[in-house]
């Protein structure tokens, strides 16, 4: 479904150039849920942005469903296949657009027909109901906003969903709701997820496989069972797991 080979992403020019991602390679199979974990600044979100076409300073090879993409330009087919949910639901919804406007514009752009019925269905699917249709973002809580953002991502009926820390800006109780919603949607639609998170517990719950990143490099590839059992090859991954489990026990 998604193949990333030898991906380098950088920002800025020579003296102040920052290499955010260095020769990262991974592959995600159809229907799989793949996690990217690491501390903040390790380049995990940058990989997603490069895949989505929001960054143009990258080299290497990105293949989505057999289609090789380049630079920032993405085809219409790509937009129908790949969608993204952003980290901060307070920043990812236009402050002057109502839920109705957001969803109908999205559906219109994706060339859907029967927009009215689809909006109702999408809202039901993300657990909001039609009462929320004409609200503006400032009339919604953080969790409700993220549900709208998920509905927007689902509107195109994509196959691959890029999740950029979808719960890190939310309260703990709301986090669980959103994670369960994402799990249900994936089961229902057979979606492929690539999820970025710094929370190992979330990744263990959501993902089949994961890659650990550090300073722009992928330092470890493991599966969820290995993560839960605490089996890690590398030093850094072991430390990361140890740190997170200790935190959980003491809390």
């Amino acid at each position: 479904m998604l193949t990333v080979e030898d991906l380098d992403v950088w920002f800025g020019h020579a003296p102040e150039r920052v290499d955010a991602v260095k020769s990262a390679s991974f592959a995600v199979r159809q229907g799989e849920s793949f996690g990217l974990v690491g501390e903040s600044g390790s380049g995990k979100s940058t990989i997603l942005r490069a895949v989505a076409g929001l960054v143009d300073t990258w080299s290497g090879r990105i293949k989505v469903g057999g289609e090789t993409v380049a630079g920032r330009h993405r085809s219409r087919g790509f937009h129908k296949t790949v969608q993204m949910v952003f980290q901060d639901p307070y920043a990812s919804l236009h402050p002057r657009h109502s839920v109705d406007r957001v969803l109908s514009e999205t559906l219109h752009l994706q060339g859907m027909v029967g927009i009215d019925a689809r909006i109702t269905r999408l809202l039901d699917q993300v657990g909001l109901g039609r009462g929320f249709r004409f609200r503006y973002p400032h009339q919604l809580s953080g969790g409700q906003r993220q549900r709208v953002a998920i509905a927007r991502a689902l509107a195109a009926e994509p196959k691959l969903l890029l999740l950029d820390e979808p719960t890190s800006a939310l309260d703990v109780s709301v986090q669980a709701e959103i994670l369960n919603l994402l799990c249900d949607i994936r089961a229902e639609r057979g979606l492929t997820y690539v999820m970025v998170s710094h929370d190992l517990a979330v990744v263990a719950h959501m993902c089949d496989r994961l890659a650990v990143m550090r300073q722009g490099r992928i330092v470890e590839d493991m599966d969820a069972a290995g993560l839960r059992a605490g089996r890690a090859q590398g030093d850094y991954a072991r430390k990361l797991i140890a740190a997170s489990t200790r935190y959980v026990r003491e809390a």
């Binding site: 969608q83 993204m84 919804l93 236009h94 999205t106 953002a149 509107a155």
Partner: peptide, 17 residues
Amino acid sequence: RADYIAAARLQGAGPLR
């Protein structure tokens, strides 16, 4: 640079829109 612009771009919105 806002995320909502990025999100609209991801839906295929052109620069004029």
